[in-house]
Simulated scan of single mutants.
Amino acid sequence: MLVKDELLIGGKGVSAGYFNNAEQTDQKFEKIDGEVFYHTGDIVEKQDSLLVYRDRKDSQVQIHGIRVELGDIRANISNIIDDPTRDIEVVFLLISHKLLLKVLYHLIYQPFRGFR
């Protein structure tokens, strides 16, 4: 089901909520016509009979079942590199149903010196 371009998942395999976490349950689960739906956070678009992934509502990704904030990865890499002259960006790519994290960093304070 789509609600405001967000993919919601319902059916027999969807739980009633998070165990001992009413606040998270209220944020991610919704009852629609008596059936429980989970808000995935995935922004999708319907094209003909297909759902096409477009974006995320947040910067959270899931890797092997573990939820990860891309901002946390960025902060940890910044601590490891410990170089204020570098700007670090963390992006994710969906390729062949596999989530790949690619860490990109580049120098932003050093002028281009041309080709030698």
Score class of each variant (00 low, 15 high):
12 K>P: 08
12 K>I: 08
12 K>V: 11
13 G>P: 13
13 G>K: 13
13 G>D: 11
14 V>S: 14
14 V>K: 09
15 S>F: 04
15 S>C: 12
15 S>Q: 06
16 A>S: 14
16 A>V: 12
16 A>L: 15
17 G>M: 01
18 Y>A: 00
18 Y>D: 00
18 Y>H: 03
18 Y>F: 04
18 Y>K: 00
18 Y>V: 01
19 F>Q: 03
20 N>S: 15
20 N>V: 12
20 N>Q: 12
20 N>L: 12
22 A>P: 02
22 A>V: 11
22 A>F: 02
23 E>M: 05
24 Q>E: 09
24 Q>S: 08
24 Q>A: 06
24 Q>M: 05
25 T>C: 00
25 T>Y: 00
26 D>N: 11
26 D>V: 08
26 D>F: 07
27 Q>C: 15
27 Q>M: 10
27 Q>G: 15
27 Q>A: 15
30 E>W: 02
30 E>A: 01
30 E>H: 06
30 E>P: 01
30 E>M: 11
30 E>Y: 04
31 K>A: 05
32 I>C: 01
33 D>H: 08
33 D>C: 03
34 G>P: 07
34 G>M: 08
34 G>N: 04
37 F>I: 09
37 F>N: 14
38 Y>E: 10
39 H>C: 15
39 H>N: 13
39 H>L: 14
39 H>I: 08
40 T>Q: 15
40 T>S: 13
41 G>W: 05
41 G>T: 09
41 G>P: 11
41 G>Y: 05
41 G>F: 06
42 D>G: 01
42 D>V: 02
42 D>S: 05
42 D>A: 06
43 I>Y: 03
44 V>M: 15
45 E>D: 14
46 K>N: 13
46 K>W: 05
46 K>E: 13
46 K>C: 10
47 Q>K: 14
47 Q>Y: 12
47 Q>T: 14
48 D>T: 10
49 S>H: 15
49 S>W: 12
50 L>G: 10
51 L>D: 11
51 L>Q: 13
51 L>F: 10
52 V>C: 08
54 R>D: 11
55 D>S: 15
55 D>E: 14
55 D>I: 10
56 R>Y: 01
56 R>G: 00
57 K>I: 00
57 K>E: 05
58 D>A: 01
60 Q>A: 03
60 Q>K: 03
60 Q>W: 06
60 Q>C: 01
61 V>F: 07
61 V>Q: 05
61 V>G: 07
62 Q>H: 11
62 Q>M: 08
63 I>Y: 07
63 I>S: 09
64 H>L: 13
64 H>M: 15
64 H>A: 14
65 G>A: 09
65 G>T: 06
66 I>A: 08
66 I>F: 12
66 I>K: 13
66 I>P: 04
67 R>W: 14
68 V>F: 03
68 V>L: 05
68 V>E: 01
69 E>V: 02
71 G>M: 05
71 G>Y: 14
71 G>P: 05
72 D>Q: 09
73 I>T: 03
73 I>G: 08
74 R>G: 09
74 R>N: 12
75 A>P: 04
